[in-house]
């Protein structure tokens, strides 16, 4: 069953992600895609993730479609102006892409081409509006399209952002702009997440909680220190520090969190950056 249909049917939806490689050798990526194929409803394909130059998202979504996997086409506004964004969306539609995740994108200064000109002609909220416009059969300039799109557009939200209020107001704008589903930044503090979900509940948009595999106590501390909107509680860090095999403990924690989240949200988005082969273990630990 497709991603959109599964959400509509109220199934507990699981997505994961593949990062396009830097270079033309996609063998490892294809191996991961095949491994995850029957375990998830859809796979996100990242877009020059962390502002690091890689194979284009559109090419990798085509690879996924050819392998029989439903992609979620991540589109950032960092590298293309409104012409580029719209024409790539039309291109993706031709390939059969249905799901688009509209993102602003990390700044070029965070990536590996710091001297690049960042574009940001549009941003996530406006991109969502553009996608809906394409679905109606028109481009941004109001020109009629010969053949319209049928995208299922989503967005991201950071439930543990500090401060939360401006982020929450932006979340509301994304809903208004036409976001039909949300995937979140990694959540670890489930109490805080519950508060967010209760507040977001009135908008009736499915929310997939972000699960990021913790590989060690050091990684957890690093996330707390350097990554916006992530706060790993001390108890979890201690649990990892006490474990003989931290990676296995991380898998156990992720599985446990998914079981808890299952009670409160529409699904989970599992991120295992660099350890995609562990995703099946996480899902097994979650009883999925």
């Amino acid at each position: 069953m497709g991603f959109k249909e599964a959400l509509a049917n109220g199934e507990f939806v699981v997505t994961a992600e593949v990062g396009p490689p830097k270079g033309t050798d996609i063998s490892e990526m294809v191996h991961h895609v095949k491994m995850l194929k029957d375990k998830v409803h859809a796979l996100n394909v990242t877009d020059n993730q962390s502002a690091v130059m890689r194979v284009s998202t559109i090419a990798v979504t085509k690879v996924l479609l050819d392998l029989g996997v439903e992609p979620i086409f991540q589109m950032t506004c960092r590298d293309r102006n409104r012409l580029g964004l719209q024409s790539d969306l039309l291109g993706a539609a031709i390939f059969g892409v249905k799901n688009v995740l509209a993102l602003t994108g990390d700044h070029t200064l965070l990536g590996d081409h710091k001297d690049a000109k960042p574009v940001f002609d549009l941003e996530s909220v406006q991109l969502l509006q553009v996608i809906n416009r394409l679905n109606e059969g028109f481009d941004m300039a109001g020109n009629e399209l010969k053949g319209k799109t049928d995208f299922f557009a989503g967005a991201i939200v950071t439930p543990e952002a500090n401060p939360l209020e401006p982020q929450f107001a932006k979340f509301e704008k994304k809903v208004e702009a036409g976001a039909k589903f949300f995937q979140t930044q990694a959540v670890y503090d489930l109490k805080k997440f519950h508060t967010f979900i209760e507040r977001a509940g009135k908008y009736n948009v499915p929310i997939l909680a972000g699960i990021l595999l913790l590989k060690s106590a050091g990684m957890a501390k690093y996330l707390n220190k350097f990554v916006a909107g992530i706060s790993v509680p001390d108890e979890l860090i201690q649990e990892l520090a006490d474990a003989e095999k931290p990676l296995e403990k991380g898998i156990e924690i992720a599985g446990r969190q998914i079981r808890e989240l299952r009670q409160v949200c529409a699904g989970v988005h599992v991120m295992a950056i660099g350890t995609e082969d562990k995703v099946p273990d996480i899902l097994a630990a979650a009883g999925l």
Binding site: E123, Q126, A161, Q185, A228
Partner: peptide, 20 residues
């Protein structure tokens, strides 16, 4: 805003500071 955004902060904002 480092990205010139028009509709609120990006996900990189942290404790009131910019992601860059």
């Amino acid at each position: 805003c480092a990205k010139g955004l028009l509709n609120g902060p990006c996900g990189g904002t942290n404790n009131g500071k910019c992601e860059i």
